[in-house]
Lab assay of single mutants.
Amino acid sequence: TETYKYDDKREAEKAAEEFRRRGITVTVEERNGTWVLESK
């Protein structure tokens, strides 16, 4: 599991889209005002 942090929800979702395009499952969730993207 890799974790990436973003200040902006849009950025996180854009990154998530890129991962999914490569066939990687990711989750995006907000933690304490930071958007956390996790690849499984």
Rank of each mutant, 00 (worst) to 15 (best):
T3G: 09
Y6N: 00
E11F: 04
T34P: 01
R20F: 08
K40S: 12
Y6G: 01
A15Y: 04
R31A: 05
T27S: 09
Y6V: 01
T3H: 10
L37E: 00
E29L: 13
R10G: 11
T25L: 14
V36E: 04
T3K: 10
V26Y: 07
T34W: 15
D8G: 05
T34F: 15
G33Y: 02
N32F: 06
A15Q: 07
A16P: 00
T3M: 11
K14Q: 10
D7T: 15
G23A: 02
V28P: 02
I24W: 12
E11L: 10
V36S: 03
Y4C: 12
V36W: 12
K9A: 07
I24H: 09
V26D: 00
E2L: 14
A16D: 00
V28D: 00
Y6F: 14
E2G: 11
E29H: 12
E17S: 06
Y4K: 08
R10N: 11
K5A: 12
A12G: 01
A16M: 07
R21F: 05
R20E: 04
Y4E: 04
S39C: 15
K5H: 14
R20V: 04
L37A: 02
W35M: 01
R10P: 04
T3S: 10
T1R: 10
K14F: 07
E30L: 14
W35G: 00
D8V: 06
K40P: 11
I24C: 14
T1E: 09
E38F: 14
T25M: 14
I24A: 08
D7L: 14
R22T: 04
R21W: 04
S39I: 15
T3R: 12
S39A: 15
L37G: 01
T27F: 11
E30Y: 15
T3C: 14
R31H: 09
V26K: 02
Y6L: 02
T1L: 13
S39E: 10
I24V: 09
E11T: 10
G33S: 03
R31T: 05
T27K: 08
K14M: 11
D7I: 12
E11W: 04
D8S: 15
D7R: 14
T25W: 15
N32S: 06
K14P: 00
T27C: 05
V28C: 06
G23F: 03
R10W: 12
A16I: 05
S39P: 13
L37F: 03
K14R: 11
N32R: 03
D7A: 15
K9S: 05
E30C: 14
E17D: 10
A12M: 04
V36R: 03
E17C: 10
K14Y: 07
R21C: 08
E30R: 09
E13D: 10
T3F: 11
L37H: 01
R21N: 07
K9N: 03
K5E: 11
A15N: 03
N32H: 06
A12S: 02
E11I: 06
T34D: 05
S39W: 15
G23R: 02
R21L: 09
R20D: 03
K9M: 07
T27A: 07
G23E: 01
V28F: 04
T27M: 08
T34H: 14
T34N: 09
D7F: 14
D7M: 14
R20T: 05
R31F: 08
R10S: 11
T3W: 12
E2T: 14
E17H: 06
